[in-house]
Design a protein around this nucleic acid. Sequence first.
DNA 1: TTAATAAAAGACAAAATTGTCCTTAATTAA
DNA 2: TTAATTAAGGACAATTTTGTCTTTTATTAA
Lengths: 145, 145
Amino acid sequence: MFSKACEYAIRAVVYIASETDETKKVGIQEICDHIEAPQHFTAKILQTLSRKHIVNSQKGVNGGFFLDSVQKKKSLKNIVEAVDGDQVFVGCGLGLKQCSETKPCPIHNQFKDIRNRLTKMMESTTIDALAIRLLKGESVLMQTK
Amino acid sequence: MFSKACEYAIRAVVYIASETDETKKVGIQEICDHIEAPQHFTAKILQTLSRKHIVNSQKGVNGGFFLDSVQKKKSLKNIVEAVDGDQVFVGCGLGLKQCSETKPCPIHNQFKDIRNRLTKMMESTTIDALAIRLLKGESVLMQTK
DNA sequence: TTAATAAAAGACAAAATTGTCCTTAATTAA
DNA sequence: TTAATTAAGGACAATTTTGTCTTTTATTAA
Ligand code: FES
Ligand code: FES
């Protein structure tokens, strides 16, 4: 469904959201310890998200990654689009060059419905909603240990 | 969503279903011409599907690939599972080792619904239903030309 | 029986994705 | 001002996916 990079991205951003604000930041090491992701690979992904203003970062002592209150209100769709692009939301399920109503692939009608539901779900799910459930202990970001 | 191999697989099988039965077969070249897929790569995928009895094949003069009436009644889910495995139907959306009700990832509740709908859709869509719509001209398997 | 045909199979090759390591730049506490 | 810290960036490596090419095996028509 999503690439590994995108899975790490969502897990990382939800963790960052749950632990930070404008005054408190977390480093890449701590993030990766809590989401069970490769550190340098995840660092690169967060660089991308930082350039796209989905997360903030600060170098130096007491630096790290953090999300402000505006960023926490963004949807998961923003993260996915930043990392994987929009094909999962608009592309043809059978890989035709473009999904089309007039020249549809055989599964277009059925697939469109699923794809639209996925899109709506990702649009309506905010980062902070997930962070809150995580803090309540209602969900986890890793399973071993 | 699905791998390239899986996209080619579905397109190929729908094409084969639309053109063959126990008495009429199609060769790999013709298949690939009609679904715009790389010939040797698709051939390998069809070998896999043949071993798993999702398609039939016959070597030699007048040989080729074909689907019998029983095979045409199979669902798309069978094709996907044969090529990509079942992770798209049972795996965690955020890549946790396994999707779990008791240790769910943050998007589990929302994601499960989408994933279940996808599964049902792929289970209830049969190969021959797609082949029929293709023959009626209501759908296409390639867009250029 | 032979020649033609078509899938099966194996060896590679290219490209994309995933992952690692090392150096550089920015920030801040001392 | 200096040293420590932390993200940014670049180079590179491993793995997986995708794609190509050649040889082998099975089948059948002539
Ligand atoms: S054309 Fe394939 S999903 Fe729309
Ligand atoms: S645990 Fe992630 S989808 Fe179920």
